[in-house]
Amino acid sequence: MLSILYVILTILGSIIGFTVAPLVDGIERKIRAKIQNRIGPPLIQTWLDIAKLLRKESLIPRTAKALFIIAPAIALAMNIAALPLLYYGAPNVLGFYGDIILILYLVVGSSLILSLGAAASGNPYATIGFSRKISLLIACELVVALSIATAILKTGSLSLTEVILRTGIAPSMIIAGIALLIVTYIESLRLPFELTEAKPEIMGGIFVEYSGRLLAFAELSHILHRFVMTLLSLDILIAPLLKLVFGVSIMGVLMSFIILMLISILVLIVYGAIESLCGRTRIDRALIFTARLMILPIISLILASIGV
């Protein structure tokens, strides 16, 4: 009985994640507009954008390679595949031993394939966007990998559910979670780290040649990626605490499900508000910042190895 609830919650969480992530983007835009003394677009604007793009023609430059066309779809598929593997407050029955590694692959792979596809368009702006994204990706994913390595080291398990269920309140996990949360901000390409699109500099960067459906897929997978990353870092940071407080009874998992979803939406909104107060930085500065961030997961790794 309980395991059916677990499955339902996981699927429900995935569906909510899929629908709400673009809505949250709309809320962000609304908040940004309010900070700028404007009315702003309707909340469902991002969905409207995607719906429109799906109905438009896709142009493919002659110079483009096949990867250009399949990359957005693959990236979207990878992000959708990552959704039901995450922890939504209930033990993830769909999970399996080693799923944490798969999540890592999907998260890194989706942004990698998107930028590879952009580079395959043969457009110099996209190429610059690609080179920036790769530099940023290497720095960021190192932090992600180290943080997840902390979790694995601390609990000795390769399953996300087991990692969460086994840890209590551990300083190493909290530090790793914080590092993940910060790196989520950088990796979701928000200002001041919005370097790969940077409209005034490289006019949309990696997205420059995409149009129509391909752009819709690329946009959607970009937005989903934000959600997946946010939820993953909250899984490491907050889920063990929720499990301690509420347990795994029916009411407990429902409560932790709701709280986890609300917090992840809240985090996304707060990120959106921070974004509107920032200007764009330069790639060299962004890399230095990310490199400094590396100290956090290293500390957490050391702590985890001594068992704290």
Binding site: A33, R38, I39, P41, P42, Q45, D49, F207, Y210, S211
Partner: peptide
């Protein structure tokens, strides 16, 4: 800009004719 704010109609300035 704020006084007229066409973003309320969903309008967005894009940097490339492709979009």
């Amino acid at each position: 800009t704020p006084y007229h704010d066409v973003e309320r109609f969903g309008m967005k300035l894009v940097g490339t004719p492709r979009h």
